[in-house]
Structures are given as C-alpha cells and as structure tokens.
Design a protein around this nucleic acid. Structure first.
Length: 151
DNA sequence: GCCAACGTTGGC
DNA sequence: GCCAACGTTGGC
C-alpha cells in the first residue's frame, strides 16, 4: 500500500465537494502532465491513501484524506470537444490521459503549506522541493505517519 | 498581477 | 536531438 498527495484547486473541486459526492466517490480527472499521469496509471492501486491538497487558493495546504477506490482508466474528458481538458490527439483506442476514482475518508484540519515547511521531518518531502509543480506526488510512509501525528 | 521554475512544442 | 520560444503552475 502506498501513499500519495493530490493537488486540486478548491474552486474547481474541494474536499467538501468530494464529501458531498454520491457514495463519497469521484473521478480525479483533468491531469494533463505525463509524470502525474504515470503515477496514477502505473502505480496507483485501490486502497492506496492520499492527502487531498488545496492549491492556488487563499490557504494552500492539506485539507483531507482520500482512498483510491478504482484503478486508472481513460479520462473521458480528453474525448469531449467542449471540455477544457479535450485532447485532439487522444482517441478511445489510444487514450493518452487517465484518472482514478477517489473516495472520501475524512477531512483534516487545514495544514498550511507554510506549516509543513517548518518541520525538519518533512524537509525531503516532494511537495516541498523547490520548483515542484507536480499535481501528484508520492509520500514517504514516514512522512505520511508524521503528518498524521500533527493533524 | 508577478514571476520562478518547469514542461511542451516545433523549427532546424 | 538541440534549444528557443512559449505555456502552465502555483505561491506570494
């Protein structure tokens, strides 16, 4: 079982939106970065856990915990001409983008990015590395455990 | 709104 | 395959 961190702009999709979703499950669509895609497509497994991170907002930080509930499958927004995630080079026979389904586990207190940066235990965390923009990053089990301890 | 740091594109 | 130009992310 592995741990991850997944970024979402709460204006687009927040932890509360997931909590309100039917069965507490929603697709994590719209990832259009190859590295992030590869993590989801090749390494995500059902039962993996992830921090739900709110980005590009007033208070960026960890907002909740989710569980992967379905293995990667083609992201249907890539085929939708009206979607901002439309990709003309993708075809159903040769899909380019994938998403997983995530299930709401719980909300946490909002742990701000600025707070995360203060802990030496997290100094190696991928999220905190300079210039990191990846919307999906692995989380070391020790880092995961440490963060659970400060919630 | 700014801008650093990346990622992607496309000409050669 | 190189690399300049351009686009995007995301904190501030």
């Amino acid at each position: 079982m592995r741990y991850w961190l997944m970024k979402s702009e709460p204006g687009e999709f927040s932890i509360d939106d997931l909590a309100r979703a039917e069965n507490h499950i929603a697709p994590w669509f719209g990832v259009r970065n190859y590295q992030a895609r590869n993590f989801m497509r090749d390494e995500f497994r059902p039962d993996d856990l992830a921090f739900f991170y709110h980005s590009s907002c007033d208070q960026p930080g960890i907002a909740g915990i989710v569980e992967i509930s379905r293995r990667a499958y083609p992201d249907r927004t890539q085929f939708d001409r009206r979607s901002k995630y439309f990709d003309p080079k993708a075809t159903p026979a040769m899909p380019r983008w994938f998403n997983v389904d995530v299930k709401f586990v719980r909300k946490t207190r909002l742990v701000p990015l600025t707070e995360l940066r203060t802990y030496p235990e997290l100094s190696k965390m991928r999220l905190l590395q300079r210039g990191n923009r990846l919307s999906i990053t692995p989380v070391d089990p020790r880092e995961w455990k440490f963060i659970l301890g400060i919630l």
